[in-house]
Design a protein around this nucleic acid. Sequence first.
DNA 1: TTCTACAGTATCCTTTTCTATACTATACCA
DNA 2: TGGTATAGTATAGAAAAGGATACTGTAGAA
Lengths: 122, 122
Amino acid sequence: MSDYNEEIVPEMCKVTDALGILVGKWKPVILLHLLKNGTQRFNELKRSLPGITQKMLTNQLRELEEEDIIERKVYAQVPPKVEYSITDYGTSLEPILHAMHVWGANHTIHKQTKRNNQAEAK
Amino acid sequence: MSDYNEEIVPEMCKVTDALGILVGKWKPVILLHLLKNGTQRFNELKRSLPGITQKMLTNQLRELEEEDIIERKVYAQVPPKVEYSITDYGTSLEPILHAMHVWGANHTIHKQTKRNNQAEAK
DNA sequence: TTCTACAGTATCCTTTTCTATACTATACCA
DNA sequence: TGGTATAGTATAGAAAAGGATACTGTAGAA
């Protein structure tokens, strides 16, 4: 049990709050796209996310906007133009996304290794 | 856009994998309890998680066990005794949980501040 | 004049997640 | 002899998340 525990008391834990913002089938990928490519238009994002429906994309973007993670900029044009980008505040999520990516990548290996060991033990 | 981006390519992102392990209504709290209090028996955990059903607790524990995050130790006794604890590997999640907790706590403040500013602006 | 691009809504349906409740076996205690 | 504690399982149902599909209005191009 490490030093961290002094700070996280399960009863007042905010992990679930943070998690709630990242959870959603497409949210992490959307964030990574915006972080990597900067400002993107709605259909640009849609094309980057094969399989997503318009409804889902709208909904995930709205939820991220609600939390001040991304910004939505509407241009009064026809046909419409709407641009999405990460807010300055939103970039504070980057280290967490990065840590999760690294952990996730390692986990894939960990599980593979475990499977191999189990097969070998037979 | 920071240096991190060199490493996380949305197309091969593992964030969702990591997220999948943490997601579940009770998983973060269960992990925090085990990290804080060490080995715990089934009913001990149950008492620490007001509102959880036995089915849910069993199911969340099984999922975490499946990913090698926690260990389940059964004692051949009657009445039964089963102990749960974080594996060594499981502790590798701690920095992430900690980062999310800190971010989440700050986010609560951020949202409050935003609300205040908006109210003030009227 | 019909077609396309744009950024969405609206409606319905399926799948997944979570909850509620009842049930199990057995040792020990009063 | 009946009640309690233990660690679950079984079954049914409610709620939330996600998917499929059709529709909108308007400018500009073919």
